[in-house]
C-alpha cells in the first residue's frame, strides 16, 4: 500500500510501461520546454531578488516535475489554489509573468488574476487553501461543471488542521478536488520525520476515506499520470484524491534569509541532484530523438528574454496609492472609509 508510483527512472528509462500516459511528441516536448523555462525562471528570480528587484520569493528548482507535471494535466477552466511556492503553476495556467513579479514585489495588480484564469493568488496561510478547495469543488459539483479544483501544500502543511478538514470535507461531499502534497523533505528546517510518525503522507488520505497516491515527484510522467487519473475520477463524480509527490528543493526555503546548510548536508543535496527531473526527462526525450541541446538553448534564451521584459513591465507599472487600497476593500465604501478616502485623496493631490 502507498508504494511510490514511478514511470521514468533516474536514467530516463521507462520502468512502468503500462502506466505510460498518452502524450503526443509535441506534448512531451512542451513539458520539457516548461521545465527548462521554469528552472531558468527560478535562477533569474533568485538573482533579481538578490539585486532587490524582486521581493518575496520561494525557490522552485527541483520541483519542476511536481509542479508542472500536475498542472499539465489540468484543463483551462479548472480552478487553481496555489500555496506560496506554487507560482509556476499559476504562470503556466495563464498568469502573465509581469504579474507574478508584481506579486513578489507586493503589488495588488499581481493578484488581479485575468478574467479567464480561474485561480486565487498564492496562499500564505499554510492549509487555508485546502479548506477553500473543498468549497470550490463543492461549488463546481453543484453547478454540474466538468471541472476540478486543484491545490498544493508542502510536507509541513500536512500537520495543519485545515489540511485534514479540507480533504475530509471534500470526501464527505464527494467533491471534485485534487489535493497535492509536495513533500520536499523539509518545512524550512524541520525534516518531514518530525511532522509525523506516518510512513507516507499519502496515507493521510485514509483518514478522509479518499484515494491516496504517493508518486516520484522528480518524474514528470508519473506526476502527470497520477494527476490525470485523479482528474478523470473527480469529473466522473468519484470524489477527491490526495497525491503526495516526493521531491526536493535545491534552494533555500525562501529568499528571506533561510540558510539550508544549517539543516541539510551536501551529500543529501548531491543525492537529490542525481534525481533531477530535468536530467532524466532530457535523457528520455533524447533517446526518442525529441530533444537537442539546440532546442534547450533556445528555450533558455526565450525565458531570459521574457523575464527581462516582464521585470521591466513590473517596474513601470503604476505605484500603489492608499486610495487604491481603500477602493479595493468593499463594493460600496462604508462611511469611515469614505472619510479616509477623502483624506488621502487630498494628500495624494499635493
Amino acid at each position: 500500500m502507498f508504494e511510490t508510483f514511478q514511470i521514468l527512472n533516474e536514467d530516463g528509462e521507462i520502468v512502468n510501461k503500462d502506466a505510460m500516459p498518452e502524450l503526443s511528441d509535441d506534448q512531451l516536448k512542451e513539458l520539457m520546454r516548461r521545465m527548462v523555462y521554469t528552472r531558468i525562471l527560478d535562477q533569474r528570480s533568485i538573482a533579481l531578488n538578490r539585486q532587490g528587484r524582486l521581493g518575496f520569493y520561494a525557490p522552485t528548482a527541483g520541483q519542476e516535475a511536481s509542479q508542472l507535471g500536475s498542472q499539465f494535466a489540468l484543463e483551462k477552466d479548472d480552478f487553481l489554489l496555489p500555496g506560496y511556492r506554487d507560482v509556476p503553476q499559476l504562470i503556466w495556467q495563464g498568469l502573465p509573468l509581469y504579474q507574478a513579479f508584481l506579486f513578489s514585489k507586493g503589488h495588488f495588480h499581481g493578484n488581479q488574476m485575468p478574467e479567464d484564469l480561474q485561480a486565487l493568488s498564492p496562499q500564505i496561510i499554510i492549509g487555508a487553501q485546502y479548506v477553500q478547495t473543498a468549497g470550490v469543488a463543492l461549488g463546481m459539483k453543484k453547478r454540474g461543471a466538468k471541472t476540478v479544483a486543484v491545490t498544493y501544500t508542502g510536507d509541513g502543511g500536512t500537520s495543519q488542521g485545515d489540511f485534514y478538514e479540507g480533504i475530509n470535507f471534500a470526501g464527505a461531499y464527494k467533491a471534485p478536488a485534487i489535493f497535492v502534497v509536495q513533500n520536499n523533505g523539509f518545512a524550512i528546517s524541520v525534516p518531514r520525520e518530525l511532522q509525523t510518525n506516518a510512513k507516507t503522507l499519502a496515507q493521510k488520505a485514509v483518514a478522509a476515506g479518499i484515494e491516496g497516491i504517493q508518486v516520484d515527484g522528480m518524474d514528470v510522467l508519473a506526476v502527470y499520470a497520477a494527476t490525470k487519473h485523479a482528474r478523470d475520477r473527480a469529473v466522473a463524480g468519484e470524489g477527491p484524491t490526495l497525491i503526495e509527490t516526493l521531491t526536493y528543493r535545491y534552494g533555500p526555503h525562501t529568499m528571506s534569509g533561510d540558510d539550508p546548510t544549517r539543516y541539510r548536508s551536501e551529500e543529501m543535496d548531491n543525492e537529490w541532484e542525481k534525481k533531477d527531473p530535468l536530467v532524466r526527462f532530457r535523457k528520455f526525450l533524447e533517446s526518442k530523438k525529441l530533444w537537442s541541446e539546440e532546442e534547450e538553448n533556445q528555450v533558455i534564451e526565450e525565458a531570459k528574454e521574457d523575464i527581462k521584459q516582464a521585470i521591466k513591465d513590473a517596474e513601470k507599472y503604476p505605484k500603489q496609492k492608499v486610495t487604491d487600497l481603500i477602493g479595493n476593500m468593499f463594493e460600496e465604501l462604508p462611511s469611515h472609509l469614505q472619510e479616509q478616502m477623502e483624506e488621502y485623496k487630498e494628500k495624494e493631490s499635493k
Partner: peptide
Amino acid sequence: SGIGGLSIGLATQG
C-alpha cells in the same frame, strides 16, 4: 474552519 473554507470556495463559484 472547514465551514469557513467551504463558504469561501462556494463564493468563488458564484
